[in-house]
């Protein structure tokens, strides 16, 4: 099967211009990205502030187009502006700030905004809105104003807004950066469930290590390049490199690392509490 997303030598340059329109400064935000994502995968993209991960996300949604190289989303070339609407329909996007992406004053109307734009008939819009609000557990808030919801709830409404467009893929650009731990948990659980139950391809962009442990595959970006890739286990076993890229490892992996340094024979790729506790109990009983 052909991969759902194929990026080849993707380059994006931002240029700053002076008053006369002459280019004064060029910044290379993406510098030769190669990436393949299969349909149905849960992908995490890790990277520090300014590593280019947000620029990359905007390419997946045809909000930005490559300066050089190509990006295919579900077989469509994003450089071709005729594909813009189709790309956005198959790959929806959730942004960082929950307030700045909710358009309507009523939750259900906001969820209906995408389908309205796509020209979906009225009765079908209602079906989709109901279904997607139920999917993210926000159905009972459908008549409310978004201003009365918490950050995590607003993000779930935004996810429902994307789901109502029936995409094959959701791109989440640091969806939890402005949330408290409870809201963060709720958003990640919602996304994980959509991936498992609805088989939606998920591309989660974040710098919270704990959110990455459940991903199928992780890309680490630094300075516009993909600098590491692998399963979460493979990535978190390379803590020194991560630190170089202004990232870190989950606290549990840190404990395991300390213990390994003291000479305790623990596996390198411990990701969560259960694994660590299990490994330690085994060691003790041995």
């Amino acid at each position: 099967m052909k991969p759902f997303i194929i990026a080849k030598d993707l380059v994006h340059e931002y240029s700053r211009r002076d008053e006369d329109g002459n280019v004064t400064d060029i910044k290379r935000a993406l510098d030769g990205i190669d990436m393949e994502v299969s349909a149905g995968d849960f992908i995490a993209v890790l990277g520090a502030n300014g590593s280019g991960k947000s620029t990359f996300a905007k390419h997946l949604n045809a909000l930005l187009t490559p300066t050089e190289g190509t990006l295919l989303v579900d077989g469509m070339d994003t450089s071709d502006h005729d594909n813009d609407l189709d790309v956005r329909c198959v790959a929806g996007m959730v942004f960082q700030n929950p307030d700045n992406q909710i358009i309507s004053n009523v939750v259900e109307e906001d969820v209906g905004f995408g389908p309205e734009n796509m020209g979906v008939p009225t009765e079908k819009i209602w079906e989709r809105v109901e279904e997607s609000l139920k999917n993210v557990g926000m159905y009972k808030y459908r008549k409310m104003s978004p201003n009365h919801l918490s950050g995590g709830q607003k993000q779930r409404v935004a996810i429902a807004g994307v789901m109502a467009m029936r995409p094959k893929c959701i791109i989440l650009d640091e969806p939890t950066a402005m949330l408290d731990p409870v809201g963060r948990r709720a958003v990640i659980d919602t996304v994980t469930e959509l991936n498992k139950k609805e088989n939606i391809t998920v591309i989660l962009i974040t710098h919270y290590m704990e959110e990455v442990t459940g991903a199928d595959y992780v890309f680490v970006m630094n300075d516009g390049k993909v600098s590491m890739q692998g399963t979460p286990r493979q990535i978190f076993a390379r803590s020194e490199e991560l630190k170089e890229y202004r990232l870190t490892i989950p606290e549990v992996t840190k404990i395991a690392l300390h213990l390994r340094k003291m000479g305790i024979e623990l596996p390198k790729d411990i990701l969560n509490e259960e694994e660590l506790v299990k490994a330690l109990i085994e060691l003790k009983n041995f």
């Binding site: 956005r88 700045n100 358009i103 995408g114 309205e116 734009n117 020209g119 009225t122 819009i125 809105v129």
Partner: peptide, 21 residues
Amino acid sequence: DLALAMDSRCYHGGRGRTKMK
């Protein structure tokens, strides 16, 4: 931000737009 969010949800003016209500 809002302009991007609207673009990303396929907003392209009133043309071909249906209504939920």
